[in-house]
Design a protein around this nucleic acid. Structure first.
Length: 217
DNA sequence: CCAGACGTTGTT
DNA sequence: GTCTGG
DNA sequence: CCAGACGTTGTT
DNA sequence: GTCTGG
């Protein structure tokens, strides 16, 4: 699955890579956790960068707390689940990252591993987003990250992995004229293991209050 | 028709 | 909002 | 994902 | 055990 990730690359570079205006600013982040704001790219009128809160609150939800659990969406059932079907058609997004953490369970203990592309370049998770109006009038934009079965590398660590979209697939995922599940679901596959790498990192990363480059030691 | 759920993960 | 179950 | 709380009453 | 918060 995916429950924690990094975005260290500056957003000017991110903007250039994904072909959008650099409208956001942020410090490097080494421990992005659910319920926090993440950098996303979506197509609303035009392609743009946006802050979205990680943890989907569907527009019909009564309680904000639902978002604490909806941090992932299974690719295998995306087109059937009431919560996601509508979003697959019209509310797709990219969630920008340059690495993510998975906890490997080995004889009773959990070891955090840090997974990146081999060349260290930033990448995009496939995501869905929605808007939710709170009773007090706040309008929240939230998102969820799509997961799938693991590739050969991730299978040694965990039984799920986030969907990473190759650059060319990002175009189709964001294209608002594409709405058929048949055209979208084939994009949601495990990223090639040969292009990824994983290494153990400090258990400091366990606590989402810990931040900074020391986590990667 | 209305009522009620709507999610993932991991663990048992 | 949309789907399932009764 | 992990960490940390998990309750009520009454009083301030 | 289960839920909430980050």
């Amino acid at each position: 699955m995916c429950g924690r990730f990094t975005l260290i690359t500056d957003l000017q570079t991110i903007a250039e890579i994904f072909g959008v205006p650099a409208t956001l600013e942020a410090q490097p982040r080494y421990n992005i956790a659910p319920s926090q704001e993440v950098v996303a790219i979506l197509h609303e009128g035009q392609r743009q960068m946006a802050w979205l809160r990680w943890g989907l609150i569907p527009s019909w939800a009564r309680e904000e707390a639902i978002g604490n659990r909806m941090i992932n969406a299974r690719a295998e059932t995306l087109a059937e689940k009431p919560s996601f079907k509508r979003l697959l058609r019209s509310r797709r997004c990219l969630v920008v990252a340059d690495g993510f953490y998975e906890w490997q369970q080995t004889n009773g203990s959990k070891k955090p591993m840090y997974i990146t592309l081999r060349d260290g370049s930033p990448f995009a998770f496939a995501g869905l987003w929605d808007q939710w109006s709170a009773a007090d009038g706040r309008l929240l934009r939230t998102c969820t990250i799509v997961t799938t079965e693991p590739n050969e590398l991730l299978a040694t660590i965990h039984n799920r992995m986030p969907v990473i979209l190759p650059r060319e697939d990002c175009e189709r995922w964001l294209d608002p004229t594409v709405q058929e599940a048949e055209a979208l679901l084939p994009l949601l596959r495990p990223y090639p293991a040969a292009e990824m790498q994983a290494r153990p990192v400090s258990r400091l990363v366990n606590d989402p209050r810990n931040e900074g480059a020391a986590l990667l030691a």
